[in-house]
Amino acid sequence: MALQELTYRDALRKALADAMTENPDVVIIGEEVGRYGGAYAVTKDLIKEFGGERVIDTPISEPAIVGAAVGAALAGLRPVAELMYVDFIGMTMDQLANQAAKIRYMFGGQIGVPMVLRTQGGTGRSAGAQHSQSLEAYVMHTPGLRLAMPATVADAYHLLRQALTKPDPVVFIEHKALYTLKETVDLDAPVPDWGKVAIRRQGRDLVIVTYSRQVHYAMEAAKKLAAQGIEATVIDLRTLNPLDFDTIRAEVEKTGRAMVVSEGVMTAGVAAELSARISEECFDFLEDPVIRVAGEDIPISVSTVLETGSVPGPQLIVDTALKLLTGRVAA
């Protein structure tokens, strides 16, 4: 209905505010979420609107923040815990992986843990090795946890709203470099269902499967490739668990070529998993190896040169696509 100009940050904040207005059991719990307004200002002023009993500032105690959210969910609340940086997830892994993820199963289906863990990751702010990682593979490797990673402003809103209706724990990883992304959106316009990919661009030559900020890089790369006569399909995963593999398979079978792009490190990462699945399931249709474009297997540096060099960008995606489509014949 109404078009509006929103940032990714605005959309997230609006999703939280709308969910809190609709459901009095939604509470936010985390470091600096209240008076400070969130380290990345996502929860700015929510405390004024909803009060300190629903926007709860905590001590710097990540394990207990997640653990308290687990208990609150078991006792009937709909908590949104905020982990300031995904890099701190290791601190919380017992509560997340041993408790939240397994409670429904261990207890024989008696109860679920309907909580959302909001956090953010990725490079782009020269934040160094302990504040720049892409650790989604840790989450994807844990059965019981859902995982959403929005790339667009509309998805920042809708995926967060949807996450807050899900019966199982959702880890919601934002990208720190996207908070200022501004788009003109109609939040009433239909979006794909939770658990379905969005095909951001349709092409005949190869499929680029990606998510989060790399969607934008893939789109930029696809534009450059188009100028050279190569048409790429760009798939935005939106949720990594559930994973809409049926659509990925169908698209890859159309073109016979697939590239997986992830900011996380290459080895044993999300790109590795996707690549293995495509290779297994689309084997008879593939013209070329499924190629991974992923983060280097190194820590992230503060130096912007080293930081930028550590992760995929549009040029690496373009170069890889060109080699995939033309280079192999010549070699």
Binding site: E53, G67, V70, G71, A75, G76, M106
Partner: peptide, 23 residues
Amino acid sequence: LGANAIVGGGIPAVVGAGLAARH
């Protein structure tokens, strides 16, 4: 709300349950 095989693992849940009781 559950027995726990992780030493200390069940403790923070009561903070959350306490928040819920207050809420």
